[in-house]
């Protein structure tokens, strides 16, 4: 537990450094190595927890935050390899969100809790894995859309040298966002398929209109609509970015908001207690 928290703390610290380097140092490579070290540190924390609790840490808000933030950081790191030069923009916009997610998770119970029977299945593990693999790119798509809207708001007159240096052109941001959305959509669909199959084992039915299923379906429909609007109705840049903001709102509800639902309204397992005792 101590080492888990220690490595997580180091990861948070390194993420802060990465943001600082992205802002202050011109060369992105330093920022990249710091981010990579942070990710490795977080991965160590995850492995320590995995060994400690005896199962992949994917249950409860704290563990969800660990996974969500890890995959986000990983996708930010991958953006370095891209020739589209959006790595720094991702570090500055998405990495603070990553840190925020970790802090949010830390507000919940971090103690070891055994799995209930319904969670003891590989399908659940992969279901959760693909959920976070969808969350990462979709959040990055949101960050890019937010950048685009910010630029649009400033009407291309961003005087700040830093921002003008690191932000790609609008059409590039727009397409990068679309690419992340597509990747997120695929993973979201795989997550859905695995969840449906496991539900058929657990509940005897493939679909149950559970609140989590409903909100995830809304997100899925929104993304599908986004793709249609983009390809066939030429919704690009500003329109598409606003739509992505709306999609992110639905993502927030389906990934993070359901612990605030009335107890017992979903069979999905979420934390129901804050450390501070709030419901």
């Amino acid at each position: 537990m101590f080492f888990e928290q220690l490595f997580l703390f180091i990861a948070i610290l390194l993420y802060f450094f990465a943001i600082f380097f992205a802002i202050k140092i011109k060369k992105a490579v330093y920022c990249r190595y710091i981010l990579l070290t942070g990710i490795l540190s977080q991965l160590t924390a995850i492995i320590i927890r995995w060994i400690d609790i005896g199962h992949p840490p994917i249950f409860g808000t704290y563990e969800a935050a660990l996974q969500g933030s890890f995959f986000m950081a990983l996708f930010i790191l991958f953006s370095y390899k891209s020739i589209y030069e959006h790595f720094k923009a991702m570090v500055i916009t998405a990495l603070p969100l990553t840190i925020l997610i970790i802090f949010y998770g830390l507000a919940f119970n971090t103690e070891r809790i055994p799995l209930t029977i319904s969670e003891l299945n590989l399908w659940v593990d992969f279901h959760a894995l693909f959920a976070w693999l969808a969350f990462g790119p979709l959040t990055l798509a949101f960050c890019l859309s937010a950048i685009l809207l910010y630029k649009e708001r400033k009407n291309g007159r961003i005087k700040n040298n830093l921002l003008s240096a690191i932000l790609p052109q609008n059409d590039i941001i727009d397409e990068l966002s679309f690419r992340y959305i597509n990747f997120g959509f695929i993973n979201h669909t795989i997550m859905f398929a695995m969840g449906c199959y496991y539900s058929s084992i657990l509940q005897g039915t493939w679909w149950d209109w559970d609140p989590v299923e409903s909100t995830s379906l809304i997100t899925w429909l929104c993304i599908a609509l986004y793709i249609h609007m983009r390809l066939f109705y030429n919704w690009k840049e500003k329109k598409a970015a606003w739509f992505m903001v709306f999609i992110f709102f639905t993502i927030l509800i389906s990934y993070w908001g359901l612990i605030y639902l009335p107890q017992g309204s979903t069979f999905h397992i979420f934390d129901l207690e804050y450390k501070g005792g709030h419901g």
Binding site: D208, W209, S214, L217, H228, Y233, P262, F267
Partner: peptide
């Protein structure tokens, strides 16, 4: 029509989501 169906489906899902909060599955 696809777009209309998307929007109506979202609305329906939202209605069912709201119901799921207060009534059994």
């Amino acid at each position: 029509l696809s777009v209309i169906i998307f929007i109506v489906s979202m609305t329906y899902s939202f209605i069912l989501f709201m119901f799921a909060l207060v009534v059994p599955t």
